[in-house]
């Protein structure tokens, strides 16, 4: 869809705002509806719009597959290890209270870190699923072409 001027201009205008809304929903989730799950999806949607307009290859230059694999595991692990920090500081697993002296600050820090892990995993998993599904078609056609080449 590279050649469609209207789509390209509108997308270029709107993609930064989608990403910004994603970040806002992520880091403002304690004060309004939102949180990691929704933010991750919104952020991934911005990237997917970029892919739809500029093509998958350009999209993978922005976030390579390798990075996606690492981040989608990394988000989940960030969540799990944040829980362990609570244990090391003398609390229970996933208890945030021992992080700081102030009860509020401790809980808020814990929630923000944990939600960031959720957002990271959800965003990269959504991107990964989309990449794997869209790439499949091209791979399949390529294999078919090779097959036809050998037959003729």
């Amino acid at each position: 869809m590279m050649d469609n001027g209207i789509l390209r201009v509108v997308a270029r205008f709107i993609i930064p705002y989608i990403l910004l809304v994603g970040l806002y929903v992520q880091f403002h989730g304690e004060y309004m509806p939102g949180g990691g799950f929704q933010a991750g999806i919104v952020f991934a949607a911005g990237w997917i719009l970029f892919v739809l307009i500029y093509g998958l290859d350009r999209g993978l230059e922005v976030i390579p597959l390798e990075v996606m694999y690492r981040l989608c595991a990394g988000g989940a692990l960030l969540y799990a290890f944040t829980g362990l920090v609570g244990v090391l500081l003398g609390g229970k697993y996933l208890e945030f209270a021992p992080f700081f002296e102030s009860r509020h600050a401790a809980h808020q820090t814990g929630i923000i870190i944990v939600e960031f892990g959720v957002g990271l995993t959800v965003a990269t998993v959504a991107m990964l699923l989309f990449t794997l599904f869209t790439r499949r078609r091209a791979e399949w056609d390529e294999a078919l072409e090779q097959n036809e080449d050998t037959e003729t």
Partner: peptide, 24 residues
């Protein structure tokens, strides 16, 4: 407890944190 107004975020990320980890 937390000083945040969004109860849903508090329940998801703190009170029911292990559930959310399972979801992730």
């Amino acid at each position: 407890d937390m000083g945040i107004p969004n109860m849903v975020a508090a329940v998801l990320a703190s009170y029911r944190s292990i559930d959310t980890m399972g979801e992730v």
